[in-house]
Amino acid sequence: MVEYRDQNAPPGGPYRWGMVIDLDRCTGCEACVVACHAENNIRISGEEEASKGRAVNWIRIERYWEGEYPNAQVKFMPVLCQHCGSAPCEPVCPVYASYHTPDGLNAQVYNRCVGVRYCGNNCPYTVRYFNWFEPHWDEPLNEQLNPDVTVRSVGVMEKCTFCVQRIRGAQQTAQKEGRRVKDGEVTPACVQSCPTEALVFGDRNDPNSRVSRLSKDDRGFGLLEELGTEPSITYLKRIK
């Protein structure tokens, strides 16, 4: 039917931001998790709330046990919003708080959200987090908050944005200089901090970007891609 066309695409067509996660490199050290907390003003839930399962980790390291002693094995899998090309969370939002940006981000507009939480249910990756209460920081922990990122209020859904504040910053610079964002010019906080370089970020529409090249790897697969979500994140299988 009527398809959406972006009027403001950069030279050379729109971006499609994506990530590659090499499970063979990921060691489960969780540096990404704290980096994300610091960058994105993620609330501290506290023991009480965490015990209700309400701890927020836009990126979380899922751990899976396989086998029994002495052949027990552990696998780590960083799971964050997959920024699906066809995201199940988007159409179910009655107010367009969850929608798809022209550059391939699965956006969550906090101020539009009324908190029906349907998107959270419909996300097969369970990477959407809800603000059950007004977030609170014990003074002066709040002085750390990143001014570029909204502090979410009570009753709204939140999730990984691929650090859109950084992407937009890089895009503005590039736009000023009349060029595209260069590969590696912008990285989300998790990618930046990852000690083993398991995470790589870039533009999937650029065939020469690291992300594009790595995602063609034989080890590549999309998490739950059989659901037709067209995830923007390619995982590279762990070699065992």
Binding site: G53, G115, N121, T126, F130, N131, V154, G155
Partner: peptide, 11 residues
């Protein structure tokens, strides 16, 4: 106070 007064939580 917030909808957190319910027993809901992800997922």
């Amino acid at each position: 106070t917030g909808i957190g007064q319910s027993g809901l939580h992800p997922p």
